[in-house]
Amino acid sequence: MTTTPAPLSLNGQACDLPAEATLQALLRQRGYDVDAAAFACAVNGRFVPRSQWSLHALGEGDRVDVVAPVTGG
């Protein structure tokens, strides 16, 4: 029996791995303005600093979270 690997997910939604499988490439592919300062990333629940986005390799099953400031108490 074969198992299908879990797809890559971005903010909880399945998405395709970009040709260049890095965090920065994924963000660009999904329309994020990577030069804007007001967001940060985590992969599989671990913080990935901005300086590592272009180096951080992604694979099937990785869970990417991108957060930005919102109203809060």
Binding site: G31, F39, A40, A68, G72
Partner: peptide, 8 residues
């Protein structure tokens, strides 16, 4: 402030 998932 809070932090939540950003959908561009």
């Amino acid at each position: 402030v809070g932090l939540r998932r950003l959908q561009p």
